Every structure is written in structure tokens, then in C-alpha cells.
Computed example of a mutant assay.
Amino acid sequence: MPALDIPYTEMYVVDRHKTVEYFTGSFGFEETAFSESPHVQSSLLRQGAVHLVVSSGPATESFLDEHGDGIADIALACDDVHGTAAAAVAAGGRVLPSDQGSVRVSGFGDVRHTLVPSGPEGFASVPADRTWTPARPGSTPSAGPAPVLSLDHIAVCLNAGSLHETVQYYIDGFGCERFYSEYVEVGAQAMDSIVVRSPSGGMTFTIIEPDAKRSPGQIDAFLQRNSGSGVQHLAFLVDDIVAAVREFRSRGIEFLRTPGPYYDMLADRIPSMTDQISDLSDTNVLADCDEWGYLLQLFSRSPHERNTLFYELIQRHGAQGFGSANIRALYEAVERERVDSE
């Protein structure tokens, strides 16, 4: 009774209209439906196979007070909702209160999972516990061809010491398979990561914890801003990252900048990328490779007040990894830039 896919993710935000404008006006999503009640107001955004629910209102305030803007619910499509819920409870999870027949179970931190039935006609891409009204066609700006294809993975940061227990919960409770693991050292900092994936390949979590024996780093900083475990970023799969970055950048998306020495070192790291270095440097896109191929990726700056959640663009050319070598390469590039400036 494994979970198969992620039909939608629900984000709680302080300012729903501002967040919807960010995704529609800059990232090219379309608002396809909305729901309004005294307790929660929600917008359904879609691009490619990605469905985002953006919600605010009294029902979201407790989460927002604790964590700020962030992912509160990751829906999981299942062949047997009640069987999956029972497996999650047996694995140490909890069934959570829900409305109108929805089944919800605990995930990590304060992030929950709504279990959605999957069948011959697919699964619902909106929460079933509220009434939805289709948005008027053309009510959000036209973004042209949609660069975002699907949700490649969800990156999760956990409090130190909880990684292996959480991974086992997703294996036993949701039928995930352990796909990849790596211990990453960056200077005096270090982190441990394990990737779990559904047997269908439609659901991938990159789960990370900091090494508490090493110096605090970016994972510790996220955990402090987020007041504990949570979703660090959503990774959107694209088929032409250079074109997508240029388009999104022209619409106001701010991406992280990459130090120049990174590209000086890239030809040595991945000789096959030499012809692409100019375009990658112009767009600050990062490159990594593994035994299956290579990938290109870039991260946005967080548009949220507490600098919690951010977004990744990723283009795959056979690679099945997640760009961990870029963490080291960026550290080395920054250090090289520092030394050269002295």
C-alpha cells in the first residue's frame, strides 16, 4: 500500500495575494480555482504537473506564528488510503483531525500528509475539505509556454538526530525506498542526507540533518528560522534551465549568484560542459554529474519574510543525483575568490 505521487502541496502564508502574485506573475503559474470560508482562504495554482495550494486565514495562524510562510501539507496519492494510514500509524505516525472524510497523518515536524485516493481517473489535485470555485479564465497573467514540468523533489531539513528515524517512517509507513545517501562536509560544517522515493518514482524526498558535532551551517540556520524541521525548498523540473532562468529573471525572480571562480573550475570538474560555460555563467546555473549523466540547477532567493522556503530549478540529462558536489564546489569557489582578493 505505498504512496505513489504528490497530487498537491499546501503552503500557509501570511499574505496570500502577494504569494499568488509571485507565483503567477513571476514564476508563470496559473490560478485555476479558489476557495473562501471564515477559517481559510485558498488559491489553487498550476503549472505543468505541479499543483500548489496557497492558503491563509485563522486556520493557518498557529503554523505561521511558529514557522512563518511554509509548506504545511504534502498530499500523498495512495491506492488504499485507509491501509496507508494504518501503515503510517504502525510505523509511529499519528492520524490527525480532518474534515469531510479527509484522512490526514503526521509527517515531519508540523508538516502533515493528506492521503488522497488514486484510481483509474487519477487523483484529486485540490483539498477535498473545502468548496472550490473555478477561477475565471484569464484572471491571472498569461505566462506563455510553461517552463515548469513537474515537481522533481522536495527537500526537507530535520533537527539533528532525527534523520534515520524519519527515513524509516517513510519506508515503513508509506512504502518508500531508500534511493541515495551521502555525508557532505563543507569546511567545518557537515550534513547527512538520505533520499527516499516511492516505487512509482512520482514522489521523492531529499531529507537532511546537520551534524551536531560540527560547526553550525546553513541547515542549522534554516532550522532556527523555521523553529524546527520543515520543507526547505521545492525543486521544479524544467527542460531548458538557461531559457527558464532568463525568462523568470526578467519577471523579477531573484536567484542566488554564483562566484566567478566556480566557472573557472567547472571545465576541470566536468570537461564535457566547456561549450556551455558561457551560458551557465551568464545565468549563474550550477552543474553536477554522476555515473548516469549530468544535471543543471539553480536556487531562488526566498521571497518569504522569514527566509524559510525557497525554490529550485533543475534540468536533468540522465543524472539521478541532487547536486551535492555543488555544495563543495561553491564553498571552494568562494574560498578561492576570498584568497584572490587578498
Rank of each mutant, 00 (worst) to 15 (best):
N226T: 04
Y263W: 10
D80E: 08
V81T: 07
R130M: 09
Y180K: 14
L149T: 04
D282C: 11
A212I: 14
E342G: 11
S162I: 03
F222Y: 04
G201V: 02
S106V: 00
S118A: 13
V156L: 03
S42A: 04
H67F: 04
Q320V: 14
G173R: 00
F248Y: 15
A333P: 07
Y22N: 02
S227I: 02
Q168Y: 01
S341A: 12
Y180W: 11
R251C: 01
A243H: 12
R338K: 13
R338P: 06
D268V: 07
E185N: 13
I194A: 12
A91K: 00
D5L: 05
F299H: 05
F174T: 03
R251A: 02
L44V: 12
R225M: 00
P303G: 01
F236L: 03
L234Y: 00
G230E: 00
E185A: 15
D279R: 05
V14W: 13
T24P: 14
A190Q: 03
T274W: 09
T32K: 10
A85K: 02
F248G: 10
C157Q: 09
P216R: 08
F108Q: 06
G119L: 00
S227A: 13
G173A: 01
D288A: 01
I194N: 09
A124E: 14
R246Y: 10
E121Y: 09
H113D: 03
P120Y: 04
L163K: 06
E66M: 06
V167T: 07
M265T: 14
L309M: 02
F108C: 09
